[in-house]
């Protein structure tokens, strides 16, 4: 999974508002090629919103995001059609991404036995593995992962963690929001609780 060129994702003085509530403010981050960042924090603190802001899907209340390199987002909604058999659901995105060799990722995620099963019959963990395969075939250097390990069994957790580590060591970058601890070398951690609007502003992390 070699990634060429400059890869970088940075955010300056980011604030996020959902409804009437400011979730966090004054958040700075700068992640570049070969780095991984773990975003930690309690439920509802704004991890998913942060990832969506970084992906450019949500506009920040304040601050700005700059990125160099294609972004792949793994979240609860990977855009796979529930009525279609798994192989066809994945094939649509592989066509869009121009992926000529998708079978490696299918094999790595153990999806081949499930190819003929419509997606809506798959379990949470199986869907998560399908989404992960779709992300792998995307071949994007920037990975934004929202709870990539939730719903996975022990073996799949190990696999996905290893894949993230491999992606980062190959020159990609990964920002992971997760409640589970991540065993990835050189992982920096960003505690979203440090950026609560009520608390004193702390100096920037990462």
């Amino acid at each position: 999974m070699q990634v060429s060129g400059q890869v970088r994702l940075s955010a300056t003085d980011l604030a996020c508002r959902r409804g009437e509530r400011v979730l966090f403010r004054g958040l700075n981050l700068d992640v570049s090629s070969g780095q991984a960042l773990h975003i930690a924090g309690a439920n509802g603190i704004g991890k998913t919103s942060l990832l969506r802001i970084l992906a450019g899907l949500l506009s920040p209340f304040a601050g700005s995001v700059e990125s160099e390199g294609a972004i792949g987002l793994l979240d609860e909604k990977p855009g796979l059609d529930p009525e279609l058999p798994l192989r066809k659901a994945l094939a649509f995105w592989e066509q869009i991404d121009g992926c000529g060799q998708p079978s490696g990722a299918h094999k790595a995620m153990g999806l081949e036995p499930l190819f003929d099963v419509p997606l809506r019959y798959l379990s949470t963990g199986q869907r998560k593995r399908a989404a992960m395969a779709s992300l792998l075939n995307r071949a994007a250097p920037i990975w934004l992962l929202d709870e990539p390990l939730s719903g996975l069994d022990t073996k799949a957790i190990e696999q996905v963690t290893a894949l993230i580590a491999l992606h980062v060591s190959g020159g990609g970058l990964a920002i992971v929001a997760s409640h589970q601890p991540l065993e990835i070398p050189d992982l920096s951690v960003l505690e979203l609780a440090d950026y609560l609007p009520t608390s004193e502003q702390t100096e920037k992390v990462a």
């Binding site: 992906a55 450019g56 899907l57 294609a70 972004i71 792949g72 987002l73 979240d75 609860e76 909604k77 990977p78 855009g79 796979l80 059609d81 529930p82 995105w93 869009i96 991404d97 995307r138 994007a140």
Partner: peptide, 16 residues
Amino acid sequence: RDIELGVFDQLKLRGV
């Protein structure tokens, strides 16, 4: 349906 599935999000990330 496609908003709920995240299809437009994923397309946007691919520059569509």
